[in-house]
Computed example of a mutant assay.
Amino acid sequence: MTSYKLFLSAISKKSLWDCLFLVVYATLLFSSWNWLSSIVDWYGENHKTSSVWPAVFASLLVGAVFGVLTMAAALFIAAPAIVVIWTSVVVAMAFAGESSRWVVVEGRKATREIVGCVFKDLLKVGNVVFLLCALLAYFVFFSSYSSSSSCP
């Protein structure tokens, strides 16, 4: 098997793209570890109040960090596919036999539509991850708050 066919076979596998997403996500997570540790440290200093608000605030920040990381990783992985789709659309319009001015105008419209669809999907994914991580972090923070406040 030639190296070109081997390369095409490898990139057509869904598991490769899943692994690539996880590698990018882990890299982004490790690079933002200082943010997460500072949020946890801040919560450790402020959870001794009688209010639940430090747990809510800290969990929202943790959810926001994970939501933004997920959107960044998904965009990083999706960028090559977006470029291929955009190039295919513009080349197909160019071969349709229309004038170059028409191709430029329609290419701009297609670019707007592609970017709009991608960002809508990224926001949906980011919001879902934000919500799940914020809820999980809230329960972790609140359980540590309630267990530490019940001790004498």
Rank of each mutant, 00 (worst) to 15 (best):
I85K: 10
S146D: 11
V23H: 05
L28A: 03
P80R: 13
A26I: 13
L28S: 03
F7I: 03
S12I: 01
K48L: 12
V65R: 10
T27A: 14
T49G: 13
Y138K: 02
V23I: 15
S9N: 04
K109E: 14
Y25V: 11
S148R: 13
E45P: 01
V52W: 11
M1D: 08
S59V: 08
E98P: 00
V83D: 12
I114G: 06
L29S: 12
H47C: 06
F95T: 06
A134H: 04
K13E: 10
V128G: 05
S51F: 04
K109V: 12
F66Q: 09
W42N: 10
G97E: 01
T87S: 05
T27C: 14
V68D: 02
G126S: 07
V68K: 03
E45G: 06
L22P: 04
I11E: 03
L69K: 04
S100F: 13
A96T: 11
R112K: 09
M71V: 09
S143Q: 07
L16C: 01
F30Y: 12
L8D: 02
A64W: 06
L29M: 09
L123D: 07
F95N: 12
S99V: 03
C117N: 13
V115T: 10
G126Y: 00
S144M: 12
N34I: 04
I11Y: 06
V24W: 06
V62S: 05
V105E: 07
S37Y: 11
M71I: 05
L61S: 10
S37Q: 11
Y138I: 04
E113Y: 06
